[in-house]
Simulated scan of single mutants.
Amino acid sequence: MTGTAPPAATPACTRLAKALQDLKSRTGLSLTALAGRTAYSKSSWARYLNGSQLAPREVVEALCALAGQPPERLLALWELAEVEWSGRHRTSAAPSPLPARPAGDAATGDRPAHRWNTRRRRALAAAACAVTLAAATWLTASRGTHTEGAAGRTAPSAAPAPGCRAEKCTDEDPETMGCAVPGQTRRVDPPYRTRTGARLVVVLSTRCHAAWALGWNTRPGDAFELSVPGGAVERVEVADALDAEDPLFTPMIDAGDLSGLRTCFIPAVGRQECVTAQG
């Protein structure tokens, strides 16, 4: 992508730029060093990081690799930002009015969707505060002269032991439990694109032996589930426009046996779509 930022408000583009600034701070690398380690110039990196130009997908992947960060969440945010940048979000049809949703059935073990989404919004708010602080630190540091070498870099700290493993992770948050650790997660299969344009991918944590579904490009009223035959069914619903702005993930399930691992997308209007993992 080239040129300056589009005139319309682009919240996803802004969040992406801040997230890239956070990753850049984690690497401890200057703009010159980033240019030396990638195929992109110092001036290009400056534009990607300050949000005046949308970073290509390959830049996001490269910076995640340099920072030791799993790319799935940031690539999902990149897709949202790319839709904004291209202007396609202004021509998309508005979603239809939503039917009333039940509050959950204690007899079957279903949990009210609002409880998980409230937890998710709080986590996103905390993450946004952390990203803003990191961005401010980066902007302050970038005004000075950068020096290269190991002495000027921050060594990554060792990840603490996970808070759960296998079946103990069922119904737990992958971030809170320390299962979404850089270098110890992988996609089970490539992202699945639904008829509405939403994307779903199953993420596996090798350190926790647990999995969760990650979805983006959703609309209020959409929902998606992750399940295994005879086991737990974990579900998350897109409660409102705030939920729809960012990638959402389900609670985890035990991933000791991936056979039959199934993801289902339930749109606010339309037919359910399900896919069984191949990996």
Rank of each mutant, 00 (worst) to 15 (best):
P99W: 08
A135L: 07
G68W: 13
L98P: 05
R73E: 05
A213W: 01
H89G: 05
L248Q: 06
D189H: 14
L200D: 11
S227G: 04
G221I: 15
Q69D: 05
A239C: 13
D105Q: 11
A210G: 11
G51V: 11
V236P: 09
L133D: 01
G230K: 03
A125S: 09
L226E: 02
P229W: 07
V181D: 00
C129V: 05
D22L: 10
A241D: 12
P247A: 02
S227V: 02
V233K: 04
A141Y: 05
T147N: 15
V233T: 13
M252T: 03
L261G: 01
E61V: 12
P7N: 07
R73A: 01
A241T: 08
L63N: 03
T276P: 10
V181H: 03
T263A: 14
A94R: 10
T185W: 02
A150M: 06
K24P: 00
Q53I: 00
P174S: 11
R207S: 09
A106Q: 06
A76M: 02
W85G: 07
V203D: 05
E172W: 14
V201L: 15
R186M: 14
V188P: 09
P95F: 00
T38R: 10
L16F: 01
W216T: 09
R120G: 03
A130Y: 10
E245L: 15
W116I: 12
V188W: 08
S44V: 05
L133K: 05
L54V: 07
V188D: 08
N217T: 03
T118N: 12
P97E: 01
R119L: 10
Y48W: 05
A12N: 09
G51W: 14
Q184W: 13
G36R: 12
T137G: 04
Q53M: 08
A198N: 08
G109C: 10
S30N: 08
V202I: 14
R207I: 11
A46Q: 06
V188I: 14
V233G: 01
G109R: 14
C64T: 07
P162T: 12
R15P: 00
R111A: 09
S259G: 06
K24A: 12
V233E: 02
L139M: 00
R219P: 06
G230D: 12
L63I: 12
F265T: 15
A255D: 00
H146E: 10
A55L: 02
A5H: 14
R186N: 10
R88A: 06
T147A: 15
N217Q: 15
E237I: 04
L242T: 14
A93T: 13
A8P: 00
E82G: 08
W116G: 02
T118A: 14
R122V: 14
W116N: 01
P11Y: 02
E234R: 02
E225T: 15
P229H: 06
R235P: 03
E273K: 03
W216C: 04
V181W: 01
I253F: 06
Y192R: 11
G104R: 09
L49E: 01
P11A: 05
Y48A: 01
V202D: 06
C129M: 11
A8N: 14
G163M: 04
R121S: 09
M252I: 02
V269H: 13
L80N: 04
A239Y: 09
C274D: 11
E234L: 00
A198P: 01
A65P: 01
P99C: 08
D243F: 11
G3K: 03
V236R: 08
T276D: 10
A33N: 03
W116A: 04
A136L: 13
